[in-house]
Amino acid sequence: MSKNGIYTPLDFKNVDFNVSIDEVGVGDRLARIKSRSIKKASKVEATLMAINMIDLTTLEGMDSPAKVRQLCSKAMRPHEEYENIPSTAAVCVYPNYVALAKKELKGSGVNVAAVSTAFPSGNAPMSIKIEDTKFAVDAGADEIDMVISRGKFLCGEYNFVFDEIAKIKEVCGKAHLKVILETGELETLDKVRLASDIAMEAGADFIKTSTGKIQPAATMPVTLVMLEAIREFYYRTGKMIGMKPAGGIKQHKDALKYLVMVKETLGEAWLNNKYFRFGASSLANELLMQLVKEYTGNYQAPEYFSID
């Protein structure tokens, strides 16, 4: 599967185009997942785990070096007071802030992820996408979050999407590749499943729901379908693919439901930030507030938590 640490894409022929997903059935499964009650020690443990899974993200036109610096500091030490609170998994920035983030995070174990391939639309020539990715990798990005060409996907040019992912994977070298499907533009869960399968076959290390720029971003049905695609892929190939729901997960309770989904779909091996990430910005403080509430017994207010 890998030569000299460089991943060789599997064959496009392996993609099963006939997997069907029943939307209402997915809802039935989710109803059970949502009914899980996470209390006390279990809640604290899950919250700590969730913080450690966050790709703390800023992807604004108005991003500044100062903001990126603050983001990095927040990522390394989410709460000033509680030492036991882990760092987040990564920060996620535009390519031009990779070098800065890399410097800020040095030695912390927090990765730098860069969005790439003409994020968020992906509407650019392949050569530019490659350059975009190369730039981020050369600047030290540990992870590349690419977008697929949804236009091509929706008009049935699956080969194009497959090749594009495979190409970017090659450019990534040792950097981990997260493939953003932008599920909010794919409409049906069948398409989400197909896009997931294509991405995994083409060499994705992670599959990711959304850019955060399109509504709906991450949803539970989409995430469940993607987790199930990962499970099937693992059973078939033995390769463990990571999952990153991104955007829209703002509540502590929701985050825990996502963890329940991971626990009950993929189990222990995926319950860590090597294989599961939350793409989020405001979620971190929400998790911290709940954590401090559990520690102190008092309900918390937002103004006591630094916003970045």
């Binding site: 996470i38 279990s42 899950a46 059973y235 963890l259 626990k263 222990e268 319950l271």
Partner: peptide, 20 residues
């Protein structure tokens, strides 16, 4: 089958639901 049983998922996770 295409499903290979040497590949197992471990659902006895270290994170457990507390009694509710």
């Amino acid at each position: 089958g295409s499903i290979n049983n040497s590949r197992k998922l471990n659902f006895d996770t270290s994170w457990q639901y507390a009694p509710a």
